[in-house]
């Protein structure tokens, strides 16, 4: 009796402590975004919290910030092209290496995943050196190439994961029933792995749009990128316009994640 009561007390203390830390951590994760959203509606000139009053003035200010528009347009273009290139190269590579036990497939897998772990800044510098060595001036093209290297791992990984869950018997049945490989791919494989490809492409797109280490070396004033522009603005002075822009980016991200959750079940995909 004694020991069972002690155990109950011990179990309760465990539950309380773990839950409390988890809740604090979850608040810590979500709070900064909420704070920025609130501050972006300030009527004042500083980032004081809580704001002295509320207005849409900084969002209106954003409308005329042509430098930010220019950088956003470049970032969007580069992100779209690198995502497209990543899907094209990444899905093909995933088909080749998924479920293949050969050594070459394992080695290729490690190679394709290595940009995720290696310091991207070192790669950015290396890419700049190579481009200048072969006489290719930095441009949107070099940015797209650099971004594709660091974004393609997300497409490969998510496509490989989707392929791993595919029943091999489906492919065999299709072949037995006389379907060609290309027909089977189009009608059986592609529809089943499509959510995986879309999830990977989405993460690739977001990480290209947000990329700093590669853009830092491969951009110039004519190819300004949004995260770099924002960083340089913040280094100079604490501008409330950046708070409004952050508000726009947060809302856009929430909306995109909501759509992706519907289309691909993003949350389950990233935890299995």
């Amino acid at each position: 009796m004694m020991s069972s009561r002690k155990r109950t007390w011990e179990a309760v203390s465990f539950e309380v402590v773990m839950t409390a830390i988890a809740l604090i951590a979850l608040i810590l994760i979500i709070a900064p975004s909420l704070v920025v959203l609130i501050v972006s509606f300030t009527s004042g000139f500083s980032l004081k919290f809580p704001p002295p009053g509320y207005s849409m003035r900084w969002y209106a200010e954003l409308w005329d910030a042509w430098q930010l528009h220019f950088a956003a347009r470049n970032s969007l273009l580069v992100a779209l092209w690198s995502t497209g290139l990543s899907i094209f190269l990444g899905v093909a590579a995933a088909l080749a290496i998924a479920r293949s036990p050969t050594l070459s497939a394992r080695l290729l897998d490690s190679l394709f995943m290595s940009p995720l772990v290696l310091p991207a800044l070192a790669f950015g510098l290396a890419a700049l050196m190579l481009f200048s060595l072969v006489g290719l001036p930095v441009s949107l093209l070099t940015l797209i190439i650099g971004h594709t290297v660091v974004c393609v791992p997300y497409v490969v990984r998510n496509t490989v994961a989707a392929l791993a869950q595919l029943e091999p018997t489906l492919l065999e049945s299709s072949a037995i029933l006389g379907a060609s490989r290309i027909y089977t791919f189009r009608r059986i494989v592609l529809p089943l792995i499509r959510p995986g490809i879309i999830a990977g492409a989405f993460i690739a797109f977001m990480s290209s749009f947000d990329n700093v280490p590669v853009s830092l070396f491969l951009r110039e004033s004519a190819t300004d990128m949004l995260p770099i522009r924002m960083w340089q603005d913040l280094e100079g002075k604490l501008d409330v316009t950046i708070a409004a822009l952050s508000g726009v980016l947060i809302i856009a991200t929430v909306a995109l994640v909501a759509v992706m959750e519907r289309v691909t079940g993003l949350s389950r995909r990233l935890t299995s």
């Binding site: 994760i29 979500i30 700093v212």
Partner: peptide, 11 residues
């Protein structure tokens, strides 16, 4: 957990 991962690092 996911939202911050996909929100811009600068933000």
């Amino acid at each position: 957990v996911l939202l911050p991962l996909l929100t811009s690092v600068v933000v």
